[in-house]
Amino acid sequence: MISLEVKNLTKVYPGATKALDDVSFQVNPGEGVVLLGHNGSGKSTLFRCITGFEKPTSGSIVIDDTDITKLSRNKLRPIRKKVGMVFQNFNLTYNLSVFQNVLFGALGHSKTAFHTFAPFASQQLREKAMACLERVGLAHLADRRADRLSGGQQQRVAIARMLMQDPEIVLADEPIASLDPVAGREVMDLLLEIVRERGLAVICILHQMDIVLEYGERIIALNAGEMVVNESIEKLDRTFLDSLYAKEESTEKERKVE
């Protein structure tokens, strides 16, 4: 199992403020980290840097003993295979079948895209896709078009696709933000169950405090690009966590005073 280490990561957008300001932390194999922060605090930039969609201005991100910030697009691919993503908007290819969407999780492992097309994929791959769907409880909907499913079901398909990828680290970007509370909780339970049974490390961006307290082992919080908290959850109390979200105005005032 691999670990993730972020060292002195800074990202400055041209002509704008610092999106990330000297952020350093480590995530060990199998660990569950919740990433907190306001909109615009740098969480998404951090994720985009970890997946190599964005090059940081300085600092390094080490995944599996490789600094990915220096890698070209092609050299990134084997690393990306190990990092599974779950998105707020599910990001399925909606006019294809559920089964096909899950098969695409194996794109990184296949010689060509052709090997992942449902009619031509190997029996082994097809069986694996069905097993992944079975794990998220949607094997009976394999043949359904993805856009015919409910939001919660679509997110479960996305989780099955992520499983198909055999990742070692999972990045979940507000996985339940576009779901209703009941479906959200179901999806969160399922995601955490799967992550634990496979011993995967997970970094999850969440805003629902109840769920954060229930699922997180460690909390990392960003504020205006700076890391303000990096603590195991037992050492933090609810009032403090709530204050992270209430603090925006006061910190801005402080900055102006400076």
């Binding site: 084997p78 399925l92 794109l107 895209a113 052709f114």
Partner: peptide, 20 residues
């Protein structure tokens, strides 16, 4: 979104084009 989702699985450029 879906394009990036497939890219993040480590898919090649052709994989992303034919998959999404």
């Amino acid at each position: 979104g879906p394009v990036q989702a497939l890219e993040s699985t480590g898919a090649s450029r052709l994989g992303v084009i034919s998959g999404s």
